[in-house]
């Protein structure tokens, strides 16, 4: 019987899952993923995690617990860095320790250190070493690495065709061949939803923000829909290097969208207490304001009532719609012609 490796459907699941899945499966392990976040997972997570953690970390706890009794090994890597000279949020670095010190009855944890700060080579070495726990053939481990890289690449490429990570995973799983283009429905606005992937793509956590925007007739673009090298290139223009990988990508996307005329507005989704976002969201807002880009910040916490979020999103889309309607009505002497005349 193959070894069951559990991967929580939270945090880096939304960025690196295809890589890990391909890697472990190639080495003969079975990968088990926790179910999509639901109320139970959230409640358990909130109850068990340390108090000052952010919501996505709390939810991670819930996912770990939902896997606890179903797997032989838990894959809870310590992600320090996935690229040169940039880091992941500090909470990720302490994650396995935090989990271990608060939860009991856990199966053995794979908590390898991933640190690519000094370069990609070290990163690869860690992965290969991890593989040696599953298989003794170096050649096979090497091939697993190649396979994992290929899957990851395909996953990232699919996203540049407009798929969200969730959709891209589905396409990969179904192995569809005609996967190149995402069907696009009629839309009145194109909105960039910015924020950490593990927040915006977790429908439960984000209170369906993306779905609500779709329902309001908006097409969504995210940082993940842009090629990473483009994000890098745009982020280079920042006066100071952004040293968080995710933050760099979010800002890169924001700068790109500000230059292109494709996007009508920014919706930044953050969770209460997110350290990096206190800087990234604020910077994004400042750049957006400077360019006259409509911007709204949605702060989420444990509330499950969607009404507040819907009100804000609705008002935001209304604003874009009314703006569009009026855009051609600016008269040359500075006084606007009123389209709402009928109401006054």
């Amino acid at each position: 019987m193959s070894v069951k490796v559990g991967i929580p459907r939270a945090l880096f699941y939304y960025y690196l899952f295809p890589f890990w899945k391909a890697f472990f499966e190639y080495l003969g392990a079975e990968v088990v993923v926790s179910p999509p976040t639901n109320k139970q997972i959230l409640n358990i997570g909130v109850k068990t995690s340390v108090d000052e953690a952010c919501l996505p970390v709390k939810v991670y706890y819930g996912h770990v617990i939902s896997l606890r009794d179903r797997v032989d090994l838990l894959f809870l890597p310590r992600l320090v860095s996935i690229e040169k000279k940039a880091y992941i949020c500090p909470k990720f670095m302490g994650l396995p320790d935090m989990i271990r010190s608060t939860l009991s009855g856990l199966p053995p944890i794979i908590d390898v250190n991933f640190n690519a700060v000094k370069g990609h080579r070290a990163y690869k070495k860690t992965v290969l070493k991890l593989g040696s726990n599953f298989c003794s053939s170096l050649r096979k481990i090497n091939r697993a690495w190649v396979e994992a890289v290929r899957h990851q690449k395909e996953f990232e490429e699919l996203q540049t065709y407009g798929f969200s990570p969730i959709e891209a995973l589905r396409v990969l799983q179904e192995g569809r061949k005609e996967k190149k283009k995402k069907k696009i429905f009629d839309f009145s606005h194109e909105i960039a939803v910015l924020g950490h992937g593990y927040t915006i793509y977790d429908d439960f956590l984000s209170l369906n923000t993306i779905k609500h925007l779709n329902d309001l007739g908006a097409k969504i673009s995210t940082a993940e829909n842009l090629p990473i090298n483009l994000l890098e290139e745009k982020a280079e223009k920042l006066p100071k290097r952004m040293f968080w990988t995710m933050g760099k990508r979010i800002l890169g996307a924001a700068l790109h969208y500000l230059e292109s005329s494709q996007i009508d507005g920014f919706v930044y989704v953050t969770v209460f207490g997110c350290g990096p976002d206190s800087v990234i969201a604020d910077l994004t807002e400042r750049y957006a304001r400077r360019r006259g880009m409509p911007f709204i910040l949605i702060t989420l916490d444990e509330h499950s009532g969607e009404a507040g979020v819907i009100t804000r999103l609705e008002a935001f889309v209304d604003m874009l719609a009314r703006r569009g309607k009026h855009e051609n009505y600016f008269s040359s002497y500075g006084k606007s012609v009123d389209i709402c005349q009928s109401t006054s």
Binding site: F295, I296, T299, R312, A315, F316, M319, I339, C340
Partner: peptide, 13 residues
């Protein structure tokens, strides 16, 4: 601005 909502904010949590 110009009789169009240009920006808004609501109190958070």
């Amino acid at each position: 601005r110009n009789r169009v909502v240009a920006d808004f904010a609501m109190n958070t949590v």
